[in-house]
Each structure stands twice: as C-alpha cells, then as structure tokens.
Amino acid sequence: MGFLQTMELAWPAEELKKWKSMKKAVYLLLPLFLYYVVHDLAQIVLWGGLELMLSGNDGVLREWLIQNGQTANGMVSGIAILLGMLPIWGMLKKEALPVWKKKGNVTSYGVLAAIALCVSMGVNILFFQMGITESSAAYTRVEEAQYGVAFAIGLVLYGVISPIAEEAVFRGIIYNRMKRCFSVKLAVPLSALLFGLYHGNTVQALYGFLLGVIIAIVYERSESFAAPVIFHAVANVTVFTVTYRNGLRDLNSAVAIGLAVALLFFAAGLGVWYLKLCEMGENKYITNK
C-alpha cells in the first residue's frame, strides 16, 4: 500500500496505537498541509492567470477590478478554497460523511443555530468592548480585507464555502483522527488549538480556539457532520452581518457588556437544551436499531 493510500484511510484506534509518534503526526497534519498548499497554489495561479488576461486591457473588467479589488480577492479565495478540498475529498468521505445527518432534526438544528448566533455575538461584543480587537494591527488588516468584499459575496464566502471547507479539514478529518489517536478529552482542545492557530493573528486565534472547542463538542454530541457546519456558518454570517458596517461601534459600553453577558447566558441555557435533544436522539436511535 502506498504512502498516500495509507494516509487516506480511517485507521481504527487499535491500529493507530501501534504507530510511531512521527507517523501519527503526519497522519494528523497531512490533510491540513494538502489543503493549505493546494489552496495557496490555486490563489497564485488564479491571480496570475487573471493578470495575464488583463495585461494591456483597459476595458470594463480592468476598471471593475481596480474599484472592487477586495471583492475580486474574495471571489478568488472562494474558488481556491473549493480547489483546496479536492486532495482531501477521499479522506473526508471515509472520516466524516458516513455520519452526515445521522442524527438531528429541525428543532435541534434550530437550537444549534441560535447558540451559534448568541455565542458569536456575545464573544465579539466582549472582545470589542475590552479593546482586544482594536489593539491588534493584524486583526485590523484582516478585518479590512474581509469587510471590503461585496456583502452578497461575503455571505457566500463566509457563510457557505469557508465553513464547509474548514469543518471538513478540522472536524471532519483532523478531529476524528485525533480522538482515535488520543482520546476525545484531548482531541477537543488540540483540534481547537490547531483551528485557532490556522487563523493567524492573536485575536482570531483566540476566537478560533473558543469556537473550535464548542464546535468539537457539538460534533461529538450530535454525531452529525451537518451540526458543526451549521454552527460555523451561522457564527460567521452573524459576525459578518453585524460588523459589516461597524455595527458594534455604535453601542453604549454598559449596554454592550450587558447584552454580551445576556447573550452568553442565553447560549448556555440553549446549550443545556441542545444536549438534552442529543440524548433524546441517541435513545431514539438505539431503540430503532
């Protein structure tokens, strides 16, 4: 069996215990490496091809690109993300897709979406009020790039393409592999840490880690790949929509902090309800079997 074939299979925990640490590390990180390399190469090729196509062209398309550079960058990034998923598709089919929508219903997914909305809003309001986002030059640059895209393009990019791709890599493949290599208790923070570091600057890394922990727990309890995708998508769309025109800057500080705390407490209550719904789903699933 070839190296890539070996790395593509969903090996059971009993077999992974026999592997050396270096081989385990490659097994865990290769999906991210493949995605990252193909994604970046695709961006370079796409921008290079676009520049060649436009060289010497003073027409309408060039003028549009000059005026809408961030939107064009978002569109290229979306295509690159989709291309980045190609080398990991075989791994995803073996690791995550067998449990796609295994459990869950409209009610549980609705509660999950409400939790994602409350958590993302609450945490981002607190970050803003504490000055965490304002103090980071790297975060400001990322924010300018993200919110420079046309609103409709941003919704598709951050609400559909990015959540599916990132969940495929970090929960669908890496988390599933980590919990077989180690344990669920270790896989949750480790996968969340990797997810946070992937986002680069300190602020987004911290937010990514917090979100990663919650999403991994959601995935584990729901046993459905649809659940983390929904959570991630709603969280992204919520933050993008609310902050697109600097919506958080207009809030009174005391009101904002009170709202953030209320949202997080409400999210905690919804979380308890969601866990109960997952338990009911498990009992129903066992009974039906």
Rank of each mutant, 00 (worst) to 15 (best):
L275H: 15
S162I: 10
L46Y: 01
R221T: 00
L275Y: 14
D250W: 03
M22D: 04
V76I: 13
G104M: 04
L126W: 01
H39L: 14
G59M: 03
S120L: 11
W64K: 04
G281C: 13
L112H: 04
A25S: 06
N252W: 04
K18E: 00
A13W: 00
A113F: 00
K276H: 13
L83H: 03
I132S: 10
L4D: 02
E134L: 14
G172A: 03
E144F: 05
Y244M: 10
Q129K: 15
A145F: 02
T133V: 13
R62Q: 02
A216D: 04
E15D: 11
L277R: 15
Q43V: 12
G49D: 01
L9A: 15
S108Q: 08
G269V: 05
L30M: 08
L194Y: 09
V188H: 02
E63T: 10
L277Y: 11
M53F: 11
N176Y: 07
Q129L: 09
G271M: 02
H199W: 00
E63D: 11
F33H: 02
Y36L: 12
W100N: 09
V184L: 00
L52T: 10
L277H: 15
A25M: 10
G78W: 08
R171H: 00
E15F: 08
M85R: 06
I132G: 03
V188P: 02
Q204W: 03
R141P: 02
L126E: 03
L82N: 09
I214G: 02
E51S: 15
M121Y: 09
K17A: 10
A80I: 02
M178I: 07
G110W: 06
N57G: 06
Y147G: 06
Y158E: 09
A267K: 07
A262Q: 02
N288Q: 15
H232T: 07
F195P: 04
P163C: 02
A187E: 01
A13S: 12
E63R: 12
L41E: 01
Y175K: 12
A192H: 01
T71C: 06
W100A: 13
V106Y: 09
Y207F: 01
S191Q: 07
G172D: 00
H39Y: 13
M85I: 05
G104V: 10
V156D: 11
I79C: 07
I230P: 00
A13K: 12
K289P: 08
W19R: 14
I161G: 14
K103H: 08
C181I: 09
M1I: 14
M1T: 14
L211E: 03
L259T: 06
V184D: 01
N288S: 15
S222Y: 04
L97D: 01
F128G: 09
G2A: 06
L275W: 15
A145K: 14
L259D: 00
G69R: 14
I125T: 04
L9M: 15
N236T: 08
A152G: 08
D250C: 13
A226P: 08
V234H: 03
G59I: 11
A72K: 12
C118P: 07
V149T: 11
Y207N: 10
Q70L: 15
E8R: 15
F266I: 10
V234I: 09
K20N: 07
K289N: 09
A187S: 01
A42K: 14
K24Y: 00
N252Y: 04
N124T: 10
R171K: 08
G258D: 00
L30S: 01
I88R: 06
Q67G: 09
W19M: 11
G110C: 06
I230T: 05
